[in-house]
Structure formats: structure tokens, C-alpha cells
Design a protein around this nucleic acid. Structure first.
Lengths: 198, 198
DNA sequence: GTCGAGAAACGGCCCGTTTCGTTTCGCCGC
DNA sequence: GCGGCGAAACGAAACGGGCCGTTTCTCGAC
């Protein structure tokens, strides 16, 4: 998995030190966890990893690329499949909020979104990632559609976008501790609007 | 000695607080528009406003405070009242997207959200502002509720939060050019889920 | 005289790049 | 297999430049 060509990373004829790369990614995560986004700098990561700045710049063209790889290194959020749309979406949001709360992922993703507001390459990477997630999460809706739980004409990607929007805003405004009842209400408002005839 | 002989353009008259404050806010908006969030610094604003940095720091404790005041100085987005919930929400989102696209407000708000991810005071200010907007936008839903268009038990603030989430994510991922048909679909998914018995 | 203003300079941090000498690794001839 | 060579990655240090937030100074209006 690690010898693939990463966007923005050399892969041809490059001999990178895997230990060094791991140390840098570990350090990046640690710095972000301990000092937050405001304390997250290439210099700080290099110090922490006992690495040289040029080594970091050689493999990651920007802070955004480093952040993105740290985020993607983390575990994936479990996508439930209970046979019921409301339960699937509530479960997914619950898993996502807990994951963001209890690991460094929340802070990493927050930082990535923030970075994307001033760095064009970060914006592109984030848009691409968000697009992928949108179609991925959309499968929850597609499954419900196949069960007849959701009307056939419904735009799954759009529904997934709405769900993700809710998650993003809560992440960005420090409201990841929403209780399940509230999440369920929000999900219900959505699912009832797209219900099928079944 | 000093640069007494500037390209003469302004009387030697002392600029008291209001004039200076306006000049600084104008400069902040201009810098943000021309250089973006990455080029937005207190020094750049001071240069542009021909003001001293201490003057800025005297009135605004942080970049976030300056951003927030610039944003609130802008025109308010018109909140339609057509007597129909779907039209109200579609109109509101259309107005908001256009406002964010066609004025500097979009970039200002983006910057504010980004700033809030690394500056605690910005986060607090933004949370407070978002809360106010939530109840404000919630009035659209409250009016629909009064008309019986929305079920009585519906949480207006939560619906407003969902609507705002959609707007935020589109702002933060550079998708403010969504066409009205898509916006209408999103709104419809929501409004149909909260419809009343009428 | 007082007060708020702008200018300038402060130490400090970080940026992204360059240079340095060293270490590691791939390859090729043996 | 073995050994050596060169390319490439490495850590460290230093570069010019920018911004941070603060301090000091001088000036002009009241």
C-alpha cells in the first residue's frame, strides 16, 4: 500500500527511507494533537521527527499534502448496514462523530478544511476527497433505494452531501458532542423527505 | 527625515477614531479581496490603510475580531417571505450564494471559519454568530409552522442548522455556483420531511 | 499638557530554499 | 557472492524574507 504513487509524491527512481516517512507522519500527528493547528508547522514536525525540513519538502509539496496523508492513514469510519435507512445514517453519523472526537482525525480534518481556505492545492485535494466520500456515503442511500425505502428518483449524492454538510458544520463549530436524539431528529427530517412509496 | 512629502492626497488633518477605523476596515476588505486569506495579515492591512499596527491592535484584539467586523459591516442577506416554505428556503439560499459570490463576504466568511480552526476567540465569536443566525433563519421555518405548512413538533433551529450546513459546505468547498434546480432539490428533500398535515 | 496617531524597530517564529558533508542503497564488474 | 562506485536521500545549518505582537519615539490636534 505504501509503494503506490501518491499525488504530489515522487515514486519513480526514488529511494525513500520508510522509517523516516513514518516518523514524519507520526510526528505530524503528534504535533497536531499536542499543539493544535496553530502550532502545526513544517519546522515543528521536522524537530519532532528529528528530520530535516528538506526531507519533508522532498516528499510532501505542502502542509496540505502532509495533513491529507495523516488523515488517510487513520482508520476508516464504519458504515453500518442494518437494513434500515434511518438506523444506517444515525449509526454512520454517530460513528463519525465519535471517531472525530476520540482520535486525532477530527483535528486533522478540521485543519485540512482550514488549510484549503488559503491553499489552492489543498482545496483541490479536499474537493477530490469529498467527492469520493460523497459517492461512498451515497451507497447507504443507494441500498435503501434498492429496498424501496427511498424513492427511485432521489439524488443519492445530493443526500450524502446533505448528511456530510451536517457533519462538517458540527466539526468546524466544535459541536461533535451532539446527543443521539438530536442526530436522529436531523436524520429523520431528511429521510422522511425522500421516502419511497413502499 | 520622514516621508513628509507623499504624493499629496490627503489633508494633514488628524484622523480620529471613526475615520481611521473605517479606513482600516476598508483596507482589510480590500486586502482580503485582492490577496485572499493567505495574504491577509495585520501588517498588510496596516500598510494598505496607511495605519500603524498598534492602532489596529488597540481596537481589534485579533485577526478574527477584524474579520468579524468586516463581515458584519456588509449588507445583510435578504430573507424572503413568499408564503411558501420551499420558495422561501430556495430564495434564501439563492440570495446567500449570490451574495457570497458577488461580494467579498464569501471570502471574508471563509476566512473567519478557517481562522476559527486555530484561534479559540474566533471559534467563540463564530459560534455565537452562528447561533444568532440559526434562530434568525429559523424564523422562516417558524412562519411556515404558523401557516401549518410545517408540523408543530419540528425543531426550527435544527432545520435552520441543516440549511446553513449545506450553505457552509458549499462555501468551503468552492461550490457556490450550484444551479437553482439542485438547490431546490436539496430544499425539497428537507421540506418534505418536515411537512405538516395541512 | 495630554492623548491618540503613525513610523520604526525589537526579538521571535516560520517560510521555502540552498548548501554542506554524510549515509544509504542500487547496480555492475568481478 | 563480493566489493566498490555513484546516485540519491539524509540531517543539520544557514539563507533572505515575511509576519507576529510589543515597545519606543515623535508629531499634531485638541
Amino acid at each position: 500500500m505504501s509503494e503506490q504513487a501518491h499525488p504530489g509524491r515522487r515514486s519513480i527512481g526514488a529511494r525513500r527511507n520508510p522509517d523516516s516517512a513514518d516518523a514524519i507522519l507520526d510526528a505530524a500527528e503528534a504535533v497536531l494533537t499536542e499543539a493544535g493547528y496553530s502550532g502545526f508547522s513544517i519546522e515543528a514536525v521536522a524537530r519532532r521527527a528529528r528530520a530535516g525540513k528538506p526531507t519533508i519538502y522532498r516528499w510532501w509539496p505542502s502542509k496540505a499534502a502532509l495533513l491529507l496523508e495523516v488523515y488517510q492513514r487513520g482508520k476508516r469510519v464504519a458504515v453500518p448496514d442494518t437494513g434500515n435507512l434511518e438506523e444506517d445514517l444515525v449509526g454512520f453519523l454517530n460513528n463519525l462523530f465519535r471517531h472525530w472526537r476520540e482520535t486525532s482525525s477530527g483535528n486533522v480534518f478540521r485543519s485540512l478544511v482550514a488549510e484549503a481556505q488559503s491553499d489552492e492545492t489543498a482545496a483541490v485535494a479536499l474537493a477530490s476527497y469529498a467527492g469520493g466520500r460523497r459517492s461512498h456515503t451515497g451507497q447507504i442511500i443507494e441500498r435503501a433505494k434498492a429496498r424501496g425505502e427511498v424513492a427511485a428518483g432521489i439524488d443519492s449524492a445530493l443526500v450524502a452531501d446533505l448528511v456530510a454538510s451536517y457533519a462538517w458544520k458540527h466539526l468546524l463549530t466544535n459541536r461533535l458532542d451532539e446527543d443521539e436524539a438530536t442526530i436522529r431528529k436531523a436524520v429523520r427530517y431528511l429521510t422522511q423527505g425522500i421516502a419511497g412509496a413502499r
